[in-house]
Simulated assay, not measured.
Amino acid sequence: METSELVIDVRGFRIESAAEFADALRAVEPEALPGWRGRSLDALWDYIEHRGWSERIDRYQVLVVRAVRAGLFADGNRAGHDIAEVFGEATRARLELSD
């Protein structure tokens, strides 16, 4: 079976915080994470792994988020590391960081 992926590309956004990350995701895909405001990693986990919170995400087997390894996701940024860790543990989502 072929894997269906929802790709949300936020590489064109300046993202310095988890809240800005959530805003960028909603700017590209308004229905993807309607209630996540970037404050709770547990809520992010529920959206991307457990599902049932977003019909848009639930239509796909895998959520792919593309972002730049800068700002929030720069080396040493703890909040970005924590978000990347959530995606790294997920089986139904992945975070792709580019330079």
Rank of each mutant, 00 (worst) to 15 (best):
A84Y: 02
E49Y: 09
G76I: 06
R39E: 14
S17Y: 04
R26G: 12
T91A: 14
F13R: 02
Y60I: 03
V86N: 01
E31A: 15
Q61W: 06
F87S: 04
A19T: 12
R11G: 04
F21L: 11
G76S: 12
A79V: 09
H81S: 12
V10I: 15
E29V: 05
G80P: 00
R39K: 14
G76F: 07
S17G: 07
G52P: 09
R26Q: 15
S98K: 13
E31S: 14
S4G: 09
I57Y: 05
W45H: 11
E89P: 05
R66A: 08
L25K: 00
F21Q: 03
E20R: 04
V28E: 08
V68F: 06
A79T: 10
S98E: 15
E20P: 01
A27P: 01
L44F: 05
G52Y: 12
A79Q: 13
G88M: 08
G12A: 14
D82T: 01
P30W: 02
L95K: 00
E31V: 13
A19P: 05
R69W: 06
G88E: 09
R56C: 12
G80C: 04
A84E: 04
S40E: 14
A67L: 05
F21E: 06
E49W: 11
A70D: 13
F73I: 00
R51A: 15
S54W: 00
G12C: 08
S98T: 15
E16G: 13
G35W: 13
N77A: 10
D46M: 13
R11F: 06
L6Q: 07
G76D: 14
A27Y: 04
L72H: 03
E89H: 12
R37I: 07
L95I: 04
F13P: 00
I83M: 01
E85Q: 06
D9N: 14
L33S: 06
